[in-house]
Amino acid sequence: MLLIDCPYCGNRPEIEFTYGGQAHIARPTQPADYDDHQWTEFLYLRDNQRGLRAERWRHSHGCGRFFNALRDTTTDRFHGTYKVGEPRP
């Protein structure tokens, strides 16, 4: 069970969190401007990198907030967490 540093509550056990997939994929503000190909990419295609990855978590059984985290997918080590809207460090 990972220990995740919620930017609001501090280190908490993974069991309090929900994983939210890849971070920094904003929903288009004008989806109508997207052609089918672009829309499909937004909707379905995600990176699957080995190494450092920015991903979303929600402290669902805690403060309820979504936030972003940098995690190394090969070691499970977190290199930092940051609030929604903040740039990737």
């Binding site: 509550c9 908490r12 069991i15 309090e16 059984h61 805690g62 403060c63 309820g64």
Partner: peptide, 10 residues
């Protein structure tokens, strides 16, 4: 105080 889990309850 905090929200957390107790077994399978929030």
């Amino acid at each position: 105080c905090t929200r957390t889990v107790f077994g399978k309850a929030d």
